[in-house]
Write a protein that binds this DNA or RNA. Structure first.
Lengths: 348, 348
DNA sequence: CGAGCGGATGTTAGCGCTAACACAGACAGG
DNA sequence: CCTGTCTGTGTTAGCGCTAACATCCGCTCG
């Protein structure tokens, strides 16, 4: 037996010595080469097991030129969507024998994005997956010229680079359609930041569905994804309702803003779905427990991560792979209902 | 000028050639050694800049034995706390010149934790930070014998290993104290899973504060951190209220359960804070927009991550560093108030 | 039955870097 | 003026691995 504690100088030739072969044969066994006698292979494998040997990844990377690492850049990770995408990404990467290196951008600027990708290049990862929903960062991604596969997740818009995403437009149409089907004459919309492609896609879907039904298209309200901006929008809309404007259905570009809006409505004595129907977007785990339970559009964020890895692997193999957007689904809960009495034609 | 596209064979000796020195001098400049003439240093730096040279980390790791990478294992990342910790961790690691490799456990078992740490060892990271709030995984961490610094975040309990955490007991006492100060005779508690040290710490704090005030200690209700378990607890407590039991204040071990409980209360016609006061734990970004805005105990998750890195760096330098738990703070919002009339002594 | 072939293995040469040593030249002290 | 020390630099030897080539053997085939 070896002395336990001290140095763990265990290298390939130690295994070779124990198995009575050359270090190259050990390497062959480890890398699954053919042309190794079954008996030899077994002997080497036993030696590896007994010694607890593991190849040094740095040495390997040095000679193969691959670190078997994927870099992941994201603006925010402390939100459900990105976090969930990370989970999908990491699991898929791990299953493919890659490890995941993560960077969280301090700010959503092109400069920060460039820096982050650059750091990954310096780290010599094999590929980079970037989650950038803001134009600034997304644009930076398009301009960056990196010597490795770079795939974009959910950056939306006119993307030529390899990318995966959820079909935002369809999601917004689903939400809007649902409200129109309930009999609402039109649907108001609270959008996200102007420089978010996702927000714009959801506006487009909402507008398209209204137009398709010949419903009037009211101006949308601007939010910034936060509950507090939803709250502000809620106050604004409540005031309009009091002023007699017909606001019976609201579609918000995410669940957090919907939460804020519900809070504001509640304060103003407006109840969903009695007075106003409300639909969100994302399907947070909390959404079923909002007051009332939120009707929303679910996006499969983890699937996004998994597809990101598929795309990366394909490009690493030099293949061209195109993945269609992931279809979102509508989840109907308690926050939507028929048109309130006050908005129905008199006498009904 | 070189041909652009093709191979980027740029190595240290290319820089050396351009600067008219040996590759070793380039190495010295890069690693900031003294004993390099200012003039030479400048010349080398210019060559590096002009060529856009970056050292190969694999070669470096091979010879130095350090990958300048920290591994992070966590059970769930799609929750606010762990995600926020990741952010703090990543930024601190980056500032210290380390990159962060992340693994998300598929299940919270000892086996999965062992495997994950093992994978990191195989990856030859310099250190591992583990976030394991469940006993199973936490115990595995204590038993694992790894040849590198392993620091635990928030695993709570009787930890000897280097660890950082938030003072859960104090947090729970804060919450309980606040409710008692409002005049409630006692405080009910909805806890987390039995195998969570954090949950047990919060029970301990809650119980300690009740005892210190001579208040009766009712049995706690078991939850599992999810909104749905909070909902179930809410139904249960509502039934008890209807049955005449005096339940006027509830402290829940996290905000998500508080959300569920509020939803259940709302369905049962109980309003916070009119009928029952409710306090959560964590301070989710959504908490201020719950109905009603949730009084809760804030934990600084990002700080936890930063401290994790400090601890790692200290151990990497061979130093012994002890960090006190991070103090939590109470945030009073709308979900708590005075004792409802029905529970006051008759005639008041 | 000898040339030729292919499977199993060993030997050698790096991958790109840093550490250790070697070696000039400058300058101090005796 | 010679020795000793210090500073700046070059030279050499690996780190642990894989790729390429070399070698040996047993076998088939003309």
């Amino acid at each position: 037996m070896e002395p336990e504690g001290a140095t763990r100088a265990l290298v390939m030739s130690d295994v070779a010595a124990r198995a009575g072969v050359s270090h190259q044969t050990v390497s062959r066994v480890i890398n699954g080469h053919r042309n190794v006698a079954p008996q030899t292979r077994e002997r080497v494998e036993r030696a590896i097991r007994e010694l607890g040997y593991r190849p040094n990844p740095a040495a390997r990377a040095l000679v193969t030129g691959s670190t078997r690492t994927i870099g992941f850049v994201t603006v925010t990770i402390n939100q459900y969507g990105p976090a969930q995408t990370l989970v999908g990404l990491e699991q898929a990467a791990r299953n493919a024998g890659y490890s995941l290196s993560v960077t969280v951008l301090d700010e959503a600027t092109a400069e920060a994005m460039r820096e982050a990708v650059d750091r990954f290049v310096g780290q010599s990862v094999d590929a980079v997956v970037a989650l950038a929903t803001y134009d600034d960062a997304a644009e930076a991604l398009h301009l960056i010229d990196v010597p490795l596969p770079l795939v974009t997740v959910q950056s939306g818009g006119a993307v030529e680079e390899p990318a995966v995403g959820v079909d935002q437009v369809t999601g917004a149409r689903l939400a809007t359609r649902h409200l129109l089907d309930l009999g609402h004459r039109t649907v108001h919309h609270v959008t996200g930041p102007a420089d978010s492609q996702e927000a714009r896609d959801r506006i487009a879907g909402w507008r398209a569905e209204l137009c398709a039904s010949g419903a009037p298209v009211p101006p949308y309200l601007r939010g910034d994804w936060t509950p507090s901006s939803g709250y502000a929008a809620g106050k604004e809309l409540a005031a309009r309702v009091r002023a007699g404007e017909e606001v019976t259905a609201v579609f918000l570009a995410n669940d957090q803003m919907a939460l804020g809006l519900l809070a504001a409505f509640h304060e103003e004595g407006l109840d969903a779905p009695r007075d106003v129907s409300v639909v969100g977007f994302d399907d947070l785990p909390e959404a079923p427990y909002f007051t009332p339970p939120l009707t929303t559009v679910r996006q499969d964020f983890a699937e996004l991560g998994r597809r990101g890895v598929r795309l990366v692997l394909a490009r690493l193999r030099g293949e061209e792979l195109h993945l269609d957007p992931v279809p979102p689904t509508l989840l109907v809960r308690g926050s939507t209902g028929p048109v309130p009495a006050r908005a129905l034609p008199a006498g009904v």
